[in-house]
């Protein structure tokens, strides 16, 4: 059984239209896989099926060989599958550190123990994971800031830090480059490469061809709910048909 995340024959329809129509996808560890294609071809739906925000009508999703198709998103997160959102998801009511901490401390039994006034299980580990993620993304100096006072570009990094604090095996990133300027994009690229080097499996849904070309090892191209091409990034991106399918008609 392969490690990482695998989708097999995933189908998901909305109101009679098959937004995702029998898709296979592999996100192996230690590599960056990119999923590209124009708007409205089912990328986001497939992404939601992988992350657990929605369930596929047919097909299976496997995490390190284990069938997680029926699990809701929070259960998948606890098994080591983290995601970020296209519209950045941070919690403005918490500080930077608390945002990251939320990602680190979701284990069973924590709530009940805390209500009884007992320390949560793995509290020290959660704190250490939080510190590590903050340092990795250079957020340590602003750890006590309210999250909503961070500059916009930094919010993406904060969301990423929260995802990393859970020490995921697989990380799904939905347009991580959106809203970032050139310097922030470069920083993001460096962080993602470092994570892959440590053996994490990364899936990138991204509009920015440049970022994909710079980062991805494998590229999948989606059109009308199906995979129309897959292969090493350089070959796939050089393909004229892919270029034609990419831009909106």
């Amino acid at each position: 059984m392969s490690a990482g995340l695998t989708a097999r024959g995933v189908v998901r329809g909305f109101g009679g239209i098959r937004a995702v129509d029998g898709v296979d996808l592999a996100v192996p560890p230690g590599r960056i896989t990119a999923l590209v294609g124009p708007n409205g071809v089912g990328k986001s739906t497939l992404f939601d099926c992988l992350a657990g925000a929605t369930r596929p009508d047919a097909g299976r999703v496997l995490l390190a060989g284990r069938d997680i198709t029926a699990l809701p998103d929070h259960a998948r997160a606890r098994l080591g599958l983290a995601r970020t959102f296209q519209q950045v998801a941070v919690f403005p009511g918490l500080t930077v550190e608390q945002n990251v901490r939320v990602g680190a401390e979701q284990r069973r039994g924590g709530t009940a123990r805390a209500l009884l006034g007992l320390p949560a299980p793995g509290r020290a580990a959660a704190r250490a994971a939080t510190d590590r993620a903050l340092r990795l993304l250079d957020l340590d100096p602003v750890r006590d800031w309210p999250a909503d006072r961070l500059p916009p570009g930094t919010l993406r990094l904060l969301e990423l830090a929260r995802a990393l604090a859970a020490a995921p095996r697989v990380l799904l990133l939905d347009e991580p480059g959106a809203g970032l300027d050139l310097a922030q994009t470069a920083r993001l690229a460096a962080v993602l490469r470092a994570l892959t080097a440590e053996g994490m499996a990364l899936l990138l849904v991204e509009h920015d061809v440049e970022l994909v070309a710079r980062l991805a090892d494998t590229v999948y191209v989606m059109a009308a709910g199906r995979m129309v091409a897959r292969g090493p990034a350089r070959e796939v991106l050089a393909d004229r048909r892919v270029a034609a399918a990419w831009g909106e008609p």
């Binding site: 929070h74 998801a89 919690f91 990602g103 979701q106 859970a166």
Partner: peptide, 12 residues
């Protein structure tokens, strides 16, 4: 603050 985000972070 962000229900989907909380869920994705593992909050039940």
């Amino acid at each position: 603050d962000h229900q989907a985000g909380a869920s994705a972070a593992g909050v039940d």
